[in-house]
Nucleic acid binder design. Sequence first.
DNA 1: AATGAAATATACTCCCT
DNA 2: AGGGAGTATATTTCATT
Lengths: 146, 146
Amino acid sequence: MKVDKLNWQILELLQKNARLSNAEIGRKVGLSSPAVAERIRKMEDTGLIKGYTTSIDYSQSGYQLFAIITLRAFMGKLKPFLDTVKQFDEVINCYRITGNENIIMEVVFTDHFHLEEFIDKMITYGETRTHIVLSNVVEDRPIIKR
Amino acid sequence: MKVDKLNWQILELLQKNARLSNAEIGRKVGLSSPAVAERIRKMEDTGLIKGYTTSIDYSQSGYQLFAIITLRAFMGKLKPFLDTVKQFDEVINCYRITGNENIIMEVVFTDHFHLEEFIDKMITYGETRTHIVLSNVVEDRPIIKR
DNA sequence: AATGAAATATACTCCCT
DNA sequence: AGGGAGTATATTTCATT
């Protein structure tokens, strides 16, 4: 599956603003809107485009704390963790990783009581390390052609 | 700035699919499309909605490696790093964090040569730790009301 | 794989409540 | 803050190249 130049242009525009109309995209890349629609549909079908999301300001939505939490699972506890992590609403992203820790998560909290509560829940699964996010230096940078 | 129930419904829909039309959102939450448009406009204006992005399958777009890299900056090297990190196309997200490390980054690479090249560039700024992402257990979970 | 045209659907603006 | 009407624009489908 290779991505041609036009699709890269479309992807770049969509990454910067997913709510652009097909017609507007077409104007910028030099295609008619049905052509844009067709190309986007195909990229959705192959899974190259996974979805369209909206980024929300955590603090304005009542989540004052944003943290990166690593987990080093206890013997036999990784599987149970993986099976239940989807149920924790606070976890925005969760990756399995190589290295000393097995898991890294991006998690939102209303306050430090909420954070404490979450860490307590993690104790059954393994050893955690919590990093409070102070600021977002680079945020959702669009992927470009390489 | 408080978010009422209708706006939470709209936000939830938009987080799941940013390309939903206002009319479609209106049907689901019981509002007319101008009312939806107006509410969305206000949430954009206050910054609660930060933007609309498209998630792309990294491997299909030619980036076979996805890594989480932490940086523990050398004395006096954090500032120079923060000033230049925006120029590295590979860095999708970069956070300043508390703890032993100062920085945590999500980075995409075409292959392990590309990764090596990046780590070499980081050496001037500090000590890095690289975690290859094996899988994405939870991905871009929508924020919900708490 | 893209265009142009026709039909349908949506968005936008304005006024009214 | 939301509804409704009218206009402009967008999307979708299809025939054509």
